[in-house]
Design a protein around this nucleic acid. Structure first.
Lengths: 203, 203
DNA sequence: AAGACCGTAACTCTTTCGGGTGACCGTCGT
DNA sequence: ACGACGGTCACCCGAAAGAGTTACGGTCTT
């Protein structure tokens, strides 16, 4: 029974990862956790063959979780996940005993290849790879205009105000809005803003 | 000329910190940065007497920034800022040479006391303190109901839907909405959701 | 005891949104 | 060269949202 534990605090990324990992040949079960504490709890109950874990998590951070996990079970295989702009945590995690890491902007295929390899070879270590975040569960790709409109929304501006700001007619803003809603799967602007934050499209 | 550099990726927290630090006796200048790269850039130009820096930042993380800062100038005084649920990064940062850290949920007074002490005594180290985030620049305090409503909004639900979900009338939901808008200073629900994310009230 | 919040709810009125649809133009890739 | 896509704009329409106001009972603090 080959099982993999996926841990990421972003529900969206978590689901995307879960789905991607589930397609790896040989993987029969994928469990998920939202933070380090949850990983440790699950690990106490039933041990997975491999753990994919985000470096940056609220609560117990990735690095410390790796330490605790390995002090409990030195054989645990852990691969860290990271966004492009967070290389220090990865280095620390690998130094702490993680087997390797994956950039979140790597391809789904690379993710699967890495997981396959890690599962096949218990001694596997490192070999960094990339993966386009667009492919790790379809991160929505917004155009520059759409992001500008989304940002305007996140600052509480009306369509008319956004239009004035960007020298566009309100109707044009509405068009961009409708298109970005569709891309994000948002039902309204509040939802769109939330998804923008969850996907890291706006801050 | 006593100057302090404040670094936090959250614009809201950054401003709050800036204002709090500016009230410390003896501090004549407070500069800000949004990430590690910016800190290093500023540091190259003009060195502050003290740096307050968030552990968790996009881009160059707090830990690595501490390392680079200290390798350039071993005398740099750095205090890390952290949220309650992120203790590993602090330990690493302190191990890397930071003088101490502050919980973001400490009081404004404690923040000021720590800064005062760090500025007065160049050899000062550690002495962790706390500080209520509510006081570090007036983090809005929403009631449980208001947060539930805000969360509903972040999931794209209409007021009527939120009402059905919480067994409330739509009118009541609208009342909670209006109240939370006022607390957050939001102009509409999209703005409220954005502020909720920025303040860490919703995920 | 008085006041300050909070949770609940209703009513009105105006503004904004979001869907649907269509259209023109430019660019880029095939 | 054709088609897909993005940016621009317009019009209609019904459904929400948001502002303003009022109200009543509960809890908690002063």
């Amino acid at each position: 029974m080959t099982s993999v534990l996926v841990c990421d605090d972003s529900p969206l990324a978590r689901e995307a990862l879960r789905r991607a990992v589930a397609t790896v040949p040989g993987v029969e079960r994928v469990t998920t956790a939202a933070n380090g504490e949850e990983v440790l709890r699950r690990w106490g109950a039933d041990r997975s063959d491999l753990i994919l874990m985000d470096v940056r998590m609220p609560g117990l951070g990735g690095v410390e979780t790796v330490r605790r996990l390995l002090s409990a079970d030195p054989g645990a295989r852990i691969i860290m996940l990271t966004v492009a702009e967070d290389l220090d945590g990865v280095a620390l995690a690998v130094a702490a005993g993680a087997r390797g890491y994956l950039h979140k902007d790597a391809s789904r295929a690379e993710l699967r290849a890495t997981v396959t390899q890690a599962l096949a070879d218990p001694t596997w270590r490192l070999a960094p790879r990339r993966l386009r975040s667009a492919e790790m569960g379809a991160t929505p790709t917004l155009t520059a205009r759409e992001i500008q409109v989304l940002e305007g929304m996140s600052h509480g501006r009306s369509n008319a105000e956004i239009g004035r700001e960007l020298f566009l007619s309100e109707d044009t803003v509405k068009t961009h809005a409708r298109r970005l809603f569709k891309k994000l799967g948002a039902s309204d602007r509040a939802h769109a803003v939330a998804l923008g934050f969850r996907w890291g499209l706006v801050r």
